[in-house]
């Protein structure tokens, strides 16, 4: 006699559950392994670094590497400062400019609006490489080569994707609120600044997070526009440090990996603390995992 179906199902469920844990544990171990190795390298002594004989599991614990990355003659602190400057201004500029443009598209009526919105959406399909060379020439004519300006300034002019997201968000704010604000004597700009902006907080933070994640590790732009070491952001700077090896000198890999960790940690932190807003902005899908 075979067992009742419900019992069979329960055992099936159990083996299935065990198998699930087994697979997920192995996958997680594989995915976390690179982090173990980066910690191990960043805690290695200079001796180990010279011989390039890093071990996978941390065997030396030179925590002073984290201080030395900033106090030695490596320009790590300078790289970090440049990254912070880029990210700070990019986030503010991008968030504000996209909000203003999105409000115009969401709430104001004017001839040509629909066509312009279609133009805006279609710019999302244009690949960056096609625009790259003329943009480089424009910035060179402005005299902006080897400054942070080519990376920061374009953020003043909004971005199609962010405008689209914000417009959708504003469209969900009831129009009655606008009318109430109008009765209170606010003009369109007042309605935008005093009523819409506070209500838009989740989407403003979401766009700031996207702008942060794009710019924090941004490599291509700085590689093209920045030549002098003291103007490089972190991503480009650590690549430079890891590439400057001469016959006699190996790159300071332990300190480079400290730089790489500084590149990683804020990304994880921003997602961890920002996902609440991604949820509120209705952009759950991008962050469902980190709760």
């Amino acid at each position: 006699m075979s067992r009742p179906a419900s019992a069979r199902k329960r055992t099936g469920e159990k083996t299935h559950g065990a198998l699930r844990y087994a697979i997920l544990t192995v996958v997680s171990a594989i995915l976390m392994a690179p982090f173990v190795f980066i910690v191990s390298i960043s805690l290695s002594s200079d001796q180990t670094t010279k011989q390039l004989s890093f071990s996978f599991w941390p065997s030396e614990f030179h925590f002073d590497n984290f201080a030395r990355a900033f106090t030695s003659d490596l320009p790590m602190g300078r790289f970090l400062l440049n990254s912070v400057v880029i990210v700070f201004f990019s986030c503010i500029f991008m968030t504000l400019s996209s909000a203003v443009v999105a409000y115009g598209f969401a709430r104001l009526r004017a001839p040509g609006k629909n066509i312009l919105f279609i133009v805006l959406l279609s710019t999302m399909m244009i690949p960056g490489e096609v625009l790259l060379i003329p943009q480089f020439i424009i910035f060179r004519n402005f005299g902006w080569i080897d400054t942070l300006l080519p990376i920061i300034v374009p953020n003043l002019f909004a971005n199609a994707y962010n405008v689209f997201l914000m417009r959708q968000f504003i469209s969900r704010i009831p129009k009655e609120l606008d009318e109430a604000a109008q009765l209170d004597g606010l003009g369109q700009f007042g309605i935008f600044a005093r009523m819409a902006m506070p209500l838009m907080k989740p989407i403003l933070v979401a766009v700031a997070i996207f702008t942060f994640t794009f710019n924090w590790g941004y490599f291509f732009g700085p590689l093209i526009y920045i030549n002098s070491t003291e103007k490089m952001p972190l991503a480009l700077g650590i690549q430079l440090l890891s590439a400057t090896s001469s016959g006699a000198q190996t790159p300071p890999w332990n300190l480079v990996m400290v730089g790489a960790m500084i590149l990683i940690i804020p990304m994880v932190a921003v997602y961890h603390f920002g996902q609440k807003y991604l949820y509120e902005a209705g952009l759950v899908s991008g962050s469902a995992g980190l709760k």
Binding site: S28, L31, F35, F219, I238, I264, G289
Partner: peptide, 18 residues
């Protein structure tokens, strides 16, 4: 979910260095 997502947050430059 968190463990599987974290590598995707690592900037490409750092990932390539590791």
């Amino acid at each position: 979910r968190t463990v599987i997502y974290i590598p995707a947050l690592v900037p490409l430059v750092a990932a390539a260095m590791i």
